[in-house]
Amino acid sequence: MDRASSIPAPPEKRRSGPAGLLKFVVRNRALYIMLLPGLAYLVIFKYIPLSGSVIAFQNFNIFKGIWHSEWVGFKWFEQFFTYPQLRRLLVNTLLISFYQLLFAFPAPILLALLLNELRSMVFKRTVQTIVYLPHFFSWTIVFGFTYMILSVQTGLLNNLIESLGFERINFLQKAEYFRSIIVGTGIWKETGWSAIIFLAALAGISPTLYEAAKIDGANRFQQLLHITLPGIMPTIVILLLLRIGNILDLGAEQIYMFLNELTYKTGDVLDTYTYRIGILGGQYSLTTAIGLFKSVVGFLLMVLANRLSKKITGEGLY
């Protein structure tokens, strides 16, 4: 079957024009055949759903299908921005994302800096082994751990609160604690793992810079300020921009596990609402409009982030 591909395809013999292209494809058909399953997957599972997003502009009826459902223009988008209940979703999403940016983003940088200052390699490795571990737990299991700490009946923290003479608090069922719990458990699970990238950046800083600074009489804090931080700044900037590009993506896997009817007020976000009202409730068009809005904003932010990144660090995200 592959006799033709046994002839080497030297890159220097590239000829332009349709005839040259055809010849190239025939000669390297094994490579193109190999690519077919991946391309089929890409078209079917990524681009067909993408074009299926037109139902955001329809009053989509699953029995009539895309071709026969009536068009309603921007009706669903208008609803999304005017109904207070729907605006709440956007506010919740943005607020949780903002708190994550404020607290969860700097945490791994701090951890990497502390790890980097350790003298004992054995201790350093032990700490690393321990803090990377939670990354590999599923959100259901992390919720199990959280439940055992915060449960009103049996939670460890509540036992402590009670022994100090205060009233037990129903953390998991109260809307006012929801965002803090999401940010906190996110920090618990991912800080260690996210620190790896910063540790790699720290390892890339040339030791001669530190030696020169020592000769100049700089203490460790000054070295941190003038060598270490500037050294990892490009990594920080790139990851920050990447995070901002994903500001509307919160990961339903986590939030849906923690969410219940009592915490919708502060915790219901775009993704969880889409699941409940779209898939369970059958409101396909409205939730597609929400999804499309998310995709477009995410795309624009990502393009913007890439531009900024190239300008600031000279390196793009893609």
């Binding site: 395809a9 030297p10 890159p11 590239r14 292209l21 190239f24 494809v25 390297n28 490579l31 690519l35 391309l39 890409l42 079917i44 599972f45 990524k46 681009y47 067909i48 759903p49 993408l50 074009s51 299926g52 997003s53 139902i55 955001a56 699953i62 590009g245 993506d249 993704d271 889409t274 699941y275 779209g278 898939i279 396909y284 939730t287 597609t288 929400i290 999804g291 499309l292 998310k294 995709s295 477009v296 995410g298 795309f299 990502m302 393009v303 893609y318």
Partner: peptide, 29 residues
């Protein structure tokens, strides 16, 4: 690197990383 159309194909894959297909049309598919 010598594969004709490589840039186009890679861009087609990368694009789906920055422009996600919404959940509902995927579900309907």
């Amino acid at each position: 690197s010598y594969l004709r159309g490589r840039k186009f194909f890679i861009l087609a894959f990368v694009f789906t990383m920055i422009f996600h297909a919404p959940l509902i049309p995927t579900y309907i598919l």
